[in-house]
Design a protein around this nucleic acid. Structure first.
Lengths: 205, 205
DNA sequence: CTATGATAAACGAACGTTCGTTCATAAATG
DNA sequence: CATTTATGAACGAACGTTCGTTTATCATAG
């Protein structure tokens, strides 16, 4: 047994994973402690040995138990040969990390609707400095840019990515698009044409 | 009294409005029938004279009681002198209708998370033909376009708008941005640079 | 290597409360 | 007066949490 976790720590992780899955499947108020207990294979009362309340579990899940922290670390190492390549690699890293790891965006929906985004400032403040540094790195890579302020470009890129995730989240649940998801690379290309002063090299179309 | 509504119809509308507000404030499972009754100023049991269940209320709210239907009608009349102007006017109309009328986007979050988007195909199918017609009209207005497929451009625009609403929804609840919302016109400009073969006239920067 | 005992963890019945819904009855409507 | 609408008490089920108890864990003592 090479696990460095005590039994209690192991149980906490199992509970958080079960809660994460249930929260994105049915929301916070739509998930009961009994469901969490059942999916974590732990007795109902046992949960309270590790967490003081249901909301305590959500707070822990929202602040720590998701892939955004790993994502930030990965993005710090992204190649920055040119703006176009930096943006493309960043987009793909986000897609792989957030889409690959299930419906992370839905956890944010839960936070906004069921908690009025009250935990968000805490998460945001812990990510903000690193995110700004990454953005500056990406958009100051070699390449002539139109004179947009950094936040405008960040939100533009952000919008393209979240629009993509949003459509994915809906169409995964009920595929009203006949599987016709938009091509992320083409969306990124539109963004690149939008911010670059000249045609970006290596486009998809 | 010039209202053409019977007492029952009037009550139905009051109930739907109360439910709409509560659902976007606290989600579906976070809202109780007693809260709806109280805010609509109707006795608890009286609700069931108009709706057969709590979910029936949500379905009605989600499919009919929101501003998207009016929005579609407005968009059909948008000026289409050039692609740039058509896109800008469309963006502003969406902003005014959806942001002005409160947090409509949060109703979609509730639908995705708490109902797994199960009502979405119904809404989508009722809007799809008109939406396609509008999109074709907007993007075939006078102006040379890069050779993107229509769905790619629609989703790109959609993403820009969605990202804007998303940031608004978060920062309205807990203003972690110090009120520094992105400028929608600049975001639309990025999109226009992205799809147009030449500089769009009348930009903001 | 085993025995011990304090602590940590797991258990599931039970508590008080709130939930969505129903019901008998009364009031308002037209 | 027949029908629609409003009322709020009542129902059983489900909720989050607590409780007394049992079981597991693991450093230390023998």
């Amino acid at each position: 047994m090479e696990t460095a976790l005590t039994k209690g720590e192991k149980s906490s992780q199992v509970i958080l994973q079960a809660a994460f899955n249930l929260f994105v499947e049915q929301g916070y108020h739509g998930t009961s402690m009994r469901q969490i207990a059942q999916r974590a294979d732990i007795a109902l009362g046992g949960i309270y040995n590790h967490f003081s309340s249901k909301e305590d579990i959500f707070t822990e899940v929202f602040l720590n138990f998701h892939p955004v922290h790993e994502l930030i670390v990965e993005l710090e190492d992204v190649e920055r040969e040119s703006v176009a390549e930096a943006v493309r690699l960043t987009g793909h890293a986000i897609q792989q990390k957030l889409v690959g790891q299930g419906d992370f965006i839905k956890l944010i929906f839960v936070e906004i609707v069921e908690f009025r985004a009250k935990h968000f400032p805490v998460l945001f403040k812990s990510l903000f400095p690193k995110a700004i540094a990454i953005a500056q790195g990406v958009f100051s890579a070699r390449g002539k840019l139109r004179p947009y302020e950094l936040p405008v470009m960040v939100f533009g890129f952000f919008g393209i990515m979240f629009g993509y995730f949003f459509v994915r989240a809906i169409s995964r649940e009920s595929d009203f698009l006949d599987g016709g998801l938009p091509d992320l690379d083409k969306l990124i290309d539109i963004f690149l044409y939008g911010i670059l002063d000249e045609k970006p090299e290596g486009g998809t179309s």
